[in-house]
Design a protein around this nucleic acid. Structure first.
Length: 875
RNA sequence: GCGGACGUGGUGGAAUCGGUAGACACACAGGACUUAAAAUCCUGAGAGGGUAACCUCGUGCGGGUUCAAGUCCCGCCGUCCGCACCA
């Protein structure tokens, strides 16, 4: 019988319509059922979906469908991270209002996603630029503000003088604005901050509990939070002059090396340095030079240590009469600790470089453990390892950690002239508070009103939301909200006097910091709804790109804590119980070599490939000129090495794209998109359809009841199927889709072999096996799954079927094959009863031909029998 | 510089606990079907040797532990990623 080819592009929309019509994937409001919240990072509506989305959402979809079949109430929603600069830039360059382009993009991408046949809760869809979303975010902001978790402070920012806006660090490339190309200036601006540092310790400590997060991500976050323990030290000025303070504060993790201190150094932008610069033009020039210094890796690598003698001295806290000169130095950062350090050249490489340059003394105060009486001599390399303190007063003879404790203990007793203790232990974090102000239009307005008398006042709940004006103009650089003629003019909610709206909008990372919570009750009148949030959260499985390892995932962890502390969540601190970071989709790159296209990137569909291996050649179809085949890189518009999911779905179908994205490569690793690969997936798709048709025909006359006995081949098929079901289930739980796919190929091969054989009970076994195979492959290829389900004679929906049960009895074999080694080298194999006695296994192993050959002329010294695994004969 | 991950056939990769390395797939070669092609089906294949049965070598390199190492330990080399003047 010939079977027609399965026409995916025609059948897929049919099944999508059936699922939608019957509302198959709707999450239930029955909060007593076991639940599973599956979430993939929601997309930014850039215009079209790309293969990375296909990969990401296919993974989540297989998992969500699997959990549904296992009986869980599954929440698997989709939405749009729709605020952001690209839409505003399009408004500037093309005059299209951000809302128009954004919602246009969403319509296109929603249509594209729907063609993938994802089991999504579309009834919960929202975009972060919807007023109905950002009004709740404004409420959250107000509550954080009242709780002191949102505050204003003056801080240094990257200012683009052409675009007249603040840029994030990631948007500054080689010291220039990424869009304008203008040299970025450091400006002091008053900005809004979220107090993420309030949770620094908890955010760090709780990483330990995130067992189902990748180790890599936890480590990156731990490094980012950057906890260090040390001491806050205060050095009294010997000569105070006209200075406004009487002592200098610095932070050190090595107070044990205080006896080796030889100078103090302040950051160029330390308040004291600035104070002194008032009357010293040379110092002012030095400060400016430091500010200009690049912060790129290469700049720091090559930058010379430079300082400026401030003409001040401080008293050494331990050594009577010893003073230390105070410098301003380019390698001291204002952003960490107190912006001041004590320099101990012998035991810090930077301090040593500085001391050598300015001829400062270098005193070694640490001796190695193997010669504890002699301080390590220092030449060009500082000694930073642990050792025994020498010439260090009360710390002498102690190891590093003991010495640190001792130093703090002794110094805490002393005070500066103004009465503050000279030292106390302090834990320091690298983590900074999160600056969320953006001088941009297309973001969530910060709901604050500035009043000359009352200061910043939060917008009262009754006046929320603060809507973005529809009539902003984008023809000039700068913030459209700030120059809008009327928008910011409002009375003060507190005193009624004329006041001004805050015109900054929130960083778009705020939007994505709580969307997962909103999905649990997307239409609620408050940001969250307690019963729904308590039931659904935390997200059971979160899937997304590794590029969000720090920012988004840390912000979301912070926000969850802040929402708990403001009553929007009930005692929840971790939003994502399990995290999976998937790899990227890569493709070869192509470049023109001759004529008009020389040096230009060429898209895959504009070339023709021939040959293989070293002989592979590419030709430009339009011009016939040769093309250079370049590196395999992440699909990107700029390199033109993208493949449009629409084209693949249109020719092969969504199931093929999904199957290909899940097979072969481990999901956490990058996958290379190749034409051959997608063709292979397409062939399997057709093969499965043919096979199921054939099986359906053969099994048509099978009895409904399970036969009492099965022939050899029927039993083998049943065993292969149940073993695969067992391991496929486990692999899907572990998101090891590539291994699951390989096992599905094995079942397919077993079924293909069995379908032509006549055997006792074969018709029944074929029905069982093909049913299970369709259920398993249906997770990855849901449309073909429904088609096959129907062909197998079922009049239900595959999507509604419970996951099949493994027959444990079929997992174990009575007779097993074990390898027999002689001196660790495999010489033969042995078929033997599973529960054979050890002595019998041993005897049978020694009798094997291959073993006998290897043993010739040798004496057996020992035989190791590992039950059901291996036999090793030692001679 | 610091921290981390990885390294297996022509390719993607598999090997859950230290127990038959290379499952499964792609690509390839040969064959069948066809006037032909596509599609499909069958067969082959880590490398080297041998007519063959088989033998030797083999998981980046060098050591080690063990009856047994892709897997554990030590030292290198390479690739990738993150952080980076963080006191």
């Amino acid at each position: 019988m010939s079977t027609e080819r399965y026409n995916a592009p025609e059948r897929e929309p049919h099944w999508q319509a059936v699922w939608a019509e019957r509302d198959v994937f709707k999450a239930s409001d029955d909060f007593t059922r076991p639940k599973c919240y599956v979430l993939e990072m929601f997309p930014y509506p850039s215009g079209r979906i790309h293969m990375g989305h296909v990969r990401n959402y296919s993974m989540g979809d297989v998992y969500a469908r699997y959990k549904r079949a296992k009986g869980f109430n599954v929440l698997h929603p989709m939405g749009w991270d729709s605020f952001g600069m690209p839409a505003e830039n399009a408004a500037i360059t093309q005059g299209i209002p951000p809302a128009t382009s954004t919602y246009g993009h969403i319509d296109v991408m929603r249509r594209q996603l729907k063609t993938l046949g994802l089991a999504l809760n579309w009834d919960r869809e929202f975009a972060t630029s919807d007023v109905d979303y950002y009004r709740h975010q404004q409420k959250l902001f107000c509550d954080l503000f009242e709780k002191g978790l949102a505050y204003r402070k003056s801080s240094k920012v990257n200012w683009d003088p052409v675009d007249m806006t603040v840029l994030a660090n990631e948007q500054v490339i080689d010291g220039r604005g990424w869009r304008s190309g203008a040299l970025v200036e450091q400006r002091e601006l008053t900005q809004w901050f979220f107090k993420i540092t309030h949770y620094a310790e908890d955010l760090l400590a709780a990483l330990e509990t995130l067992e189902n997060w990748p180790e890599k991500v936890r480590l990156m976050q731990a490094n980012w939070i950057g906890r260090s323990e040390g001491a806050l030290l205060r050095f009294a000025f010997v000569e105070r002059g006209t200075l406004s303070v009487d002592h200098l504060e610095c932070y050190s993790t090595r107070p044990d090396t205080l006896y080796g201190a030889s100078f103090m150094a302040l950051a160029a932008d330390h308040p004291l340095t600035r104070e002194l610069a008032e009357g010293q033009p040379e110092l002012a020039a030095f400060i400016e030079e430091c500010a200009r210094l690049g912060t790129s890796a290469a700049d720091i690598e090559t930058a010379e240590k430079k300082g400026f003698d401030l003409g001040l001295t401080v008293a050494h806290p331990f050594i009577e009469g010893k003073t230390l000169p105070v410098y301003a130095a380019n390698f001291v950062l204002m952003g960490y600790g107190t912006g001041a350090i004590f320099g101990c050249p012998a035991h810090d490489q930077r301090d040593l470089d500085f001391a050598r340059k300015y001829g400062l003394e270098v005193t070694s105060v640490v001796a190695p453990f193997d010669s504890p009486d002699t301080a390590v001599p220092i030449e060009d390399v500082a000694y930073v390892d642990d050792g025994v303190l020498v010439n260090s007063g009360p710390m002498s003879g102690l190891k590093k950690n003991e010495a640190i404790r001792k130093a703090i203990e002794v110094l805490a007793e002393q005070t500066t002239p103004s009465g503050v203790p000279i030292a106390r232990s302090q834990t320091q974090y690298r983590l900074r508070d999160w600056g969320i102000s953006r001088q941009r239009y297309w973001g969530c307005p910060i709901p604050i009103i500035h009043c000359d008398d009352c200061g910043p006042v939060r917008v009262p709940d009754a006046d929320l939301p603060v809507r973005l004006p529809d009539d902003a103009t984008f023809d000039k650089p700068g913030n459209p909200l700030d120059r809008h003629p009327a928008w910011k003019q409002v009375p003060c909610p507190a005193c009624g006097k004329a006041a001004r709206r805050e015109t900054d909008t929130m960083d778009t990372f705020v939007d994505s910091s709580w969307y997962f919570a909103r999905f649990t009750a997307p239409h609620a009148e408050t940001p969250t709804q307690a019963d729904a949030a308590n039931y659904w959260l935390p997200v059971d499985q979160y899937i997304g790109g590794i590029e969000h390892a720090i920012l988004h995932l840390l912000y979301a962890r912070f926000f969850t804590r802040a929402m708990s502390d403001t009553g929007h969540l009930e005692d929840l601190s971790e939003p994502f119980a399990a995290l999976f970071t998937q790899g990227m989709v890569n493709h070869e790159t192509y470049k023109g070599l001759e004529g008009d296209i020389a040096g230009q990137w060429i898209a895959p569909d504009e070339i023709r490939l021939e040959g293989e291996g070293a002989a592979r050649q590419a030709t430009h179809i339009a011009s016939g000129t040769p093309i250079a085949i370049g590196a395999v890189e992440k699909m990107s518009k700029s390199k033109r090495n993208t493949v449009d999911p629409d084209d693949i779905i249109g020719s092969y179908g969504a199931d093929v794209a999904r199957w290909y994205m899940l097979s072969d490569s481990p999901p956490e690793r990058d996958v290379q998109w190749t034409e051959a690969g997608v063709q292979g997936a397409g062939r399997y798709n057709q093969r499965l359809w043919r096979l199921i048709n054939e099986a359906a025909t053969v099994m048509a006359d099978a009895d409904a009841a399970m036969p009492d006995t099965f022939g050899e081949h029927a039993l083998a098929l049943r065993k292969a199927t149940h073993k695969a079901l067992n391991s496929v289930s486990r692999n899907i739980e572990d998101l090891r889709f590539n291994v699951a796919v390989a096992q599905l190929y094995e079942v397919t091969n077993a079924l293909a072999e069995a379908v032509g054989r006549r055997d006792d009970g074969m018709a029944w076994a074929l029905r069982e096996s093909s049913t299970m195979l369709v259920q398993m492959t249906g997770l990855m290829m849901p449309h073909l799954g429904e088609e096959c389900w129907q062909r197998l004679g079922y009049n239900t929906l595959l999507a509604d079927q419970p996951w099949p049960q493994v027959d444990q009895a079929l997992l174990v074999d009575d007779t097993i094959t074990i390898a027999v080694q002689v001196n660790g080298k495999r010489r033969d194999e042995l078929q033997i009863a599973k529960d054979a006695a050890e002595a019998d296994v041993k005897a049978a192993a020694l009798a094997l031909d291959g073993v006998q050959r290897a043993l010739e002329g040798k004496t057996v010294r020992k035989v190791i029998v590992v039950p059901q695994r291996i036999v090793n004969v030692v001679v």
